[in-house]
Design a protein around this nucleic acid. Sequence first.
DNA 1: GCTACCATGTAACAGGTTACATGATTAG
DNA 2: CTAATCATGTAACCTGTTACATGGTAGC
Lengths: 179, 179
Amino acid sequence: MSLAHALLTALSERSCSGSELAKRFDRSIGFFWPATHQQIYRELSRLETTGWVSSRAVEAAPGRRRVYEVLPAGREELSRWVSTPHEPKAIRDELLVKLRAEAVLDGGGLRDALRLRLERHRDKLEAYRAIELRSFDDAEPPRKQRLQHLILKAGIDVELLWIDLCENALAILDGGTED
Amino acid sequence: MSLAHALLTALSERSCSGSELAKRFDRSIGFFWPATHQQIYRELSRLETTGWVSSRAVEAAPGRRRVYEVLPAGREELSRWVSTPHEPKAIRDELLVKLRAEAVLDGGGLRDALRLRLERHRDKLEAYRAIELRSFDDAEPPRKQRLQHLILKAGIDVELLWIDLCENALAILDGGTED
DNA sequence: GCTACCATGTAACAGGTTACATGATTAG
DNA sequence: CTAATCATGTAACCTGTTACATGGTAGC
């Protein structure tokens, strides 16, 4: 049920409509919990049925926009969920399966996939670093900012990890002997 | 369709029965592509229908064991899949959502979850390092071993990353000022 | 011959993905 | 007034998860 709580988190930061949520997801929470607009609308309906958020139609707005807002019960639920420990989820990444398949196939066909991944991870790294420069320049930031920065740094480290993996894999496929 | 290809990979390494596959998954490919025995049996049936694997019943064996084997068409499919580039998948980890929720809630309720994750990631790190010592002591390993070692090192790096994240998050929640 | 265990499987469900549909507002 | 775009939504599907069922073999 993490999408529900991701939405509660985003709406706690600022109330907004479904489409705006979808856009905000694309450039913040969605980095580590992606969601399409279909998922978001479906989940918002459920949240409203459960009584964790309320919505009101916005007059004089494009489409039939509705603005969602977290109710006290939703805030309690979010708090309860945050305090509930959970098991880590496994990585589940296609590339690692492909590396293992490449090891048994012995063909070298993985090169293109590795180069694409490398490009994507470098792009993402750059995007994260741009956000970092833009948003976290404070030398002595408040707790909230420090936590948000920590999340971003985790994202950066993940990209660095994949970049390193891809480069090493390409070196092996190209027959290099360096480690 | 990654489970299908993970199974083809495992069966290419060595033919075996469904239950044995489930066990092998638990301690190798399953680290980065987990699968329950139900998923495995369902997928094996499909693979056989598609004509990528064949199975034969084993007489004089416990239960009604069937041994699965990759057919030439399956080997081709695996090769085709390895050469097909794919987009990286997002992280999708509950902990990052919770960190962000903690930032907006301002309560400190995340400590227990962080401590549990820390423990789990340390355990996994230790397990991976034990495998590394056991399996990769060769100074000049063949290509196949180098690729497999690379996968394992990626797993180790991922655990180190999470450990670092959890420790830093706990430091912030405990009001420390170190970065 | 019980009991426990093993290999295989079924059924129901939850969540995510993709394709498409509808009404309403805005731009030209 | 027509085309493009926006906000919301429906439907079908696929994968993964959980709980349970069945038949067979092995140990006592």
